[in-house]
Write a protein that binds this DNA or RNA. Structure first.
Lengths: 111, 111
DNA sequence: TATAAATATTGACAGCAATCAATATTTGCC
DNA sequence: GGCAAATATTGATTGCTGTCAATATTTATA
């Protein structure tokens, strides 16, 4: 839980800032899907989808499994949950956060 | 809860994808701060901070209050909570989500 | 081995965004 | 009115990213 958490959290938020990738996450949040099935729901080309899946995999938000010519993708819920926890700490006013010194001071001066 | 929620959620994530803005959110999550105080904790110029605050305000993540020459900023926790709820729906496997049809089908076929 | 399907990669392009220096604006105070 | 402090705006630069067409790769099958 160092300063770099702003960077790490920011990187995941950046990956999730694309509406197409958010829809992909939504699609595979229930069950794993192969790329061709995901593609049916999107208005992008196959190469663009492949790029998005690479981005999602590189930050570990998504895992892949190959079966013959099909590539199945699934959501890494543990990474999602860790991201939610980090965001909770950043947005909370408790001392359990990244700016410990400042928020502790805040807590003591607010009375 | 239409298709545009991917866009709306994505826009907020994009604003939060910058580590400097995440630190700003962290700083003001406890109490409101004026720009000059926020600036003390960051390694950026005053004009860059002003730009970031404008971005945070334009998407309603942050509110501002002017007092003489000072501008005080505070976090809009309601917007934060709405964002968390949207993200929960996108990443959940229940039928309460954006891809209702698909996830309903998923729920019935998974048994 | 040749073909087709599924997926990945490459290259190019257009648009956006973070940053800074310099300048402008606002506001209190002498 | 003039000065100083706090903040906002402008203009320029640099780097990144989403997209597509075209091509390459992998794998099953005939």
């Amino acid at each position: 839980m160092e300063d770099n958490n702003y960077k790490d959290t920011g990187k995941l938020f950046k990956v999730l800032s694309d509406p197409v990738r958010l829809q992909i996450v939504d699609l595979i949040s229930c069950r794993e899907m192969c790329a061709c099935e995901i593609l049916e729901y999107l208005l992008i080309t196959q190469s663009t989808l492949s790029h998005h899946m690479k981005v999602l995999k590189e930050c570990s938000l998504v895992s892949s499994r190959k079966d013959a010519t099909w590539m199945y993708y699934s959501l890494n819920t543990d990474v999602i949950n860790k991201l939610k926890n980090s965001f909770d700490k950043i947005t909370s006013d408790t001392t359990e956060c990244f700016c410990y010194t400042i928020k502790k001071e805040c807590k003591t001066t607010e009375k």
